[in-house]
């Protein structure tokens, strides 16, 4: 199964949830996914298209567009295609369905995306900060309007 067939199958199955599906090369493809349909799309990818390896979940803050994107990189052990899925969320109240029930390893990725960007993953089994201390919750350090960076409190810099 090559990359064009994969995208054709995906857009044919989800004509409304998948948009702007683009083939970048023989091994890379990307698509925008609707934020309500991300779990169904991932389930279809895993069950029917052999995308059984979730590489990473991360976030991007587009402050000028007033949007936050969640980016999923999903790959396969059976064919060489890496698919990048993006979901656009509003910046005020970013909420998206968790995909832990599909890909178990997204658990910690989603926790880290939550603590750094404030994206709430609904129905996540244990949505609490992964690395940051609890009292930094709510500061969302990787958002572009974060005030605490750069930190100028170091006194004895050369």
């Amino acid at each position: 199964m090559d990359v064009t067939e994969i995208l054709k199958s995906l857009t044919g199955r989800f004509p409304e949830a998948i948009s702007e599906a683009i083939v970048e090369s023989e091994i890379r493809a990307r698509a925008y996914v609707d934020k309500d349909g991300v779990k169904e799309v991932c389930q279809y990818l895993k069950d029917s298209l052999q995308f059984d390896h979730l590489c990473v979940v991360c976030g991007v803050d587009y402050i000028k567009r007033n949007e936050i994107e969640v980016v999923y990189h999903i790959a396969s052990y059976n064919h060489p295609v890496v698919l990048m899925l993006k979901a656009i969320l509003p910046r005020e109240n970013p909420e998206i369905e968790s995909i832990v029930s599909v890909y178990w390893n997204s658990n910690w990725y989603e926790r880290e995306t939550y603590e750094l960007y404030g994206i709430v993953f609904k129905n996540h089994p244990n949505l609490k900060p992964l690395i940051l201390p609890e009292d930094m919750l709510g500061e969302w350090p990787l958002r572009k309007d974060y005030k605490g960076f750069p930190n100028k409190t170091a006194r004895n810099l050369v």
């Binding site: 350090p141 974060y146 605490g148 960076f149 750069p150 930190n151 409190t153 170091a154 006194r155 004895n156």
Partner: peptide, 18 residues
């Protein structure tokens, strides 16, 4: 530990340990 090193302006490190 002295001045933060490469992480001197990070949001999550504690500065001025002394």
């Amino acid at each position: 530990s002295i001045s933060g090193g490469p992480f001197y302006e990070s949001y999550s490190t504690v500065q001025n340990i002394d």
